[in-house]
């Protein structure tokens, strides 16, 4: 009896009664959790991408040439600076070196220090002539950060690939959830669907009503997940950005576009999955 006043509100927009048949909070909650995971995955992919970019741009072409303390470092630096691929080659002043070494060596004024030449190569330059020159210098040691950078870049790539894989898994699990929810909706409204079918409703109309409802539930859940993701991502950015980019995190560092896209993508997955599930089911009538 308590139902009667509510019946009036059902109107024709929902002849399948889907708002009640598919009213459970479980699907939006699970979709919300998936959206949160997706947001973290997206942030991971984006962060790894930025890290890789920075390493590549900032560190490629930065070399440090170490020469024996008796070498004519000034002349060597000049010679290197004239090579076509070199942007800059400068002797690191002894004062600066002592400062840098102080934490390890203490204040030892008379310790002979190696001479260091800081070199910046053009990133696109052919380095063979440069390397040939360096090889002929007695006692010279080239410290490239190259190997470490390569490894770090590979790490960033792996992180990125994992994030993408995680997004794919999240999407698939989301689609599976929608399929299960749609099937339970079909089971709850089986007789109603059959009646609408017999009254001449098109399969596409019935499928569309389910799809719209599921899309709505998914969008709601994903919106909730995206909202929860904001503080989580902020906490992450606040910790990671100073380390990675050597500056404070700002609101612009959060992946707002991706966060906004989450409800839309979730709605799309929900709509399409429900629609296909219904079309397959109706096919058998």
């Amino acid at each position: 009896m308590a139902d009667i006043p509510r019946l009036r509100h059902l109107k024709g927009r929902d002849p399948l009664g889907l708002r009640r048949a598919l009213a459970d909070r479980l699907l939006p909650a699970l979709v919300g959790a998936m959206a949160l995971l997706a947001a973290l995955g997206l942030a991971g992919a984006q962060g790894a991408g930025r890290l890789a970019e920075r390493w590549q741009a900032g560190a490629s072409g930065q070399l440090l040439l170490q020469l024996p303390s008796d070498a004519d470092a000034g002349a060597i630096a000049e010679r290197l600076a004239q090579l076509p691929g070199t942007v800059e080659a400068a002797l690191v002043p002894e004062e600066r070196l002592r400062q840098l070494m102080a934490p390890w060596l203490g204040e030892v004024p008379n310790l002979p220090l190696p001479r260091m030449v800081a070199i910046t190569l053009r990133p696109d330059a052919d380095q063979t002539s440069f390397l040939e020159v360096v090889q002929d210098l007695p006692g010279a040691q080239l410290e490239t950060q190259g190997t470490a950078i390569q490894q770090a870049l590979r790490l960033a790539e792996v992180l990125q690939a994992l994030s993408v894989a995680m997004l794919a898994v999240v999407g698939l699990v989301g689609a599976a959830l929608v399929t299960v929810a749609t099937r339970s909706g079909i089971a709850a409204r089986r007789e109603t669907i059959l009646i609408l079918h017999e009254l001449g409703a098109r399969d596409s109309d019935i499928a569309r009503r389910f799809a719209r409802r599921l899309a709505q539930l998914c969008a709601m859940g994903a919106l909730g997940g995206a909202v929860v993701a904001v503080p989580a991502l902020w906490a992450l950015a606040d910790q990671a950005i100073p380390v990675v980019l050597a500056r404070e995190a700002t609101a612009a560092d959060l992946p707002w576009g991706s966060l906004l896209a989450l409800p839309l993508v979730a709605a799309g997955i929900g709509w399409l999955t429900a629609w296909i599930t219904l079309r397959v089911w109706l096919r058998r009538l």
């Binding site: 009667i4 019946l7 009036r8 059902l10 109107k11 024709g12 002849p15 009664g17 009640r20 007789e191 109603t192 009646i195 609408l196 017999e198 009254l199 001449g200 409703a201 109309d205």
Partner: peptide
């Protein structure tokens, strides 16, 4: 079609049940 067991939609009002074919159209 009129069925022996009516086959009305229990979650819709009398009005909405009668309106169904028009809504489908």
């Amino acid at each position: 079609v009129v069925f022996q067991d009516y086959r009305l939609l229990p979650h819709l009002s009398v009005f909405e049940n009668a309106a169904l074919p028009l809504r489908i159209q």
